[in-house]
């Protein structure tokens, strides 16, 4: 049952129809405690609709969204009380100061103390800007105010729609590091939708891919992916001084699959398992072929994404 307790957000056959069009179709997935999950999909796949249904901004045609076991449909207040969210760009009352804006949300949730507000503001680095009107804020500052707003009530899940939109590289990195920190330290689950694949790749521990409103693929990425027992095949690029001879050594070995050779760079791409590679390198040394580099060829998330979604329209 510990599995069940760890699940913070659960979507069960969530469907949204508008007229005859099905925007989201029987979508199911889960987000567990401490996990950062990326929601990926081409344009119009239904990412934003899904996120809006999770936070109750849009009603669903059928299905169920549970947050800590509470239904967003039948017990909205209880379910949403544990959610912090930014839906698209965080919009504020621009004629008020940052602090006044946060006070608005504090009045709506009685448990938030002024100390907690100050603490969150400090964490996002906006302490000096609190008395300035939001209209004078940069986009990055607004994003951070958005994060502060979403974290004030110590939610168990943070839902972010395009969180790095409009941030500069430093801001993106800061945001990413920050999300990782709160996911690890406070055990907050994070669901992020983004169209920046590289960003998702660096930030998330798992991705859920949807297309035309349907679940397509689910994949662990980054550190979580290295749980291999040495039995998995991978591609590797080997740079040597004598390409032809190195290639000859491959002949007749089934465990070493030749992929391609690049004569300009003297590189050889092969596909094999851990042990086979080690043996091959011994072999190369025995034949006095110098090995300059051995690099694993990783398929980027973008490549994989295109395979999952059939390669049509990139997000």
């Amino acid at each position: 049952m510990s599995h069940q307790q760890d699940v913070v957000l659960q979507l069960d056959k969530v469907t949204k129809k508008i007229g005859k069009q099905t925007i989201v179709d029987q979508l199911s997935f889960e987000v567990k405690k401490g996990e950062i999950v990326g929601l990926l999909g081409p344009n119009g796949a239904g990412k934003t609709t899904t996120i809006r249904m999770i936070v109750g901004l849009i009603g669903m045609t059928s299905g169920e969204v549970l947050i800590n076991g509470q239904s967003i449909r039948s017990s909205f207040s209880k379910a949403i009380a544990r959610v912090g969210a930014i839906v698209e760009n965080p919009e504020f009352y621009s004629y008020m100061t940052g602090w006044d804006n946060l006070k608005q949300y504090q009045r709506m949730i009685p448990s938030i103390t002024v100390e907690r507000m100050k603490q969150v503001v400090d964490v996002v680095g906006l302490t000096d800007a609190m008395n300035k009107k939001v209209k004078s804020y940069s986009l990055g500052m607004r994003q951070r105010l958005g994060i502060a707003q979403a974290l004030m009530h110590s939610p168990s899940i943070l839902i972010l729609d395009e969180p790095t939109n409009g941030l500069d590289p430093a801001g993106i990195r800061e945001m990413r590091d920050y999300l990782k920190t709160i996911a690890q330290q406070e055990g907050i689950a994070v669901l992020v939708s983004s169209h920046l694949l590289s960003e998702i790749e660096l930030m998330c521990s798992r991705v859920v891919v949807i297309q035309q409103g349907k679940f397509v693929h689910e994949q662990l990425i980054g550190g979580a992916q290295i749980q291999q027992d040495g039995n998995e095949e991978f591609n590797v690029l080997v740079r040597v001084n004598q390409l032809e001879q190195a290639k000859q050594l491959l002949v007749g070995r089934e465990e070493l699959q030749f992929i391609q050779a690049n004569e300009l760079t003297n590189e050889l791409e092969i596909r094999c398992k851990d042990e086979a590679l080690a043996n091959y390198i011994h072999e190369l040394s025995a034949h006095r072929i110098s090995v300059y580099r051995v690099v694993e060829v990783k398929r980027s998330l973008e490549d994989e994404f295109l395979t999952w979604t059939g390669g049509n329209q990139i997000v």
Partner: peptide, 9 residues
């Protein structure tokens, strides 16, 4: 959007 995602009906 930020107003309606609070624990109030």
């Amino acid at each position: 959007k930020l107003l309606l995602i609070r624990p109030h009906s």
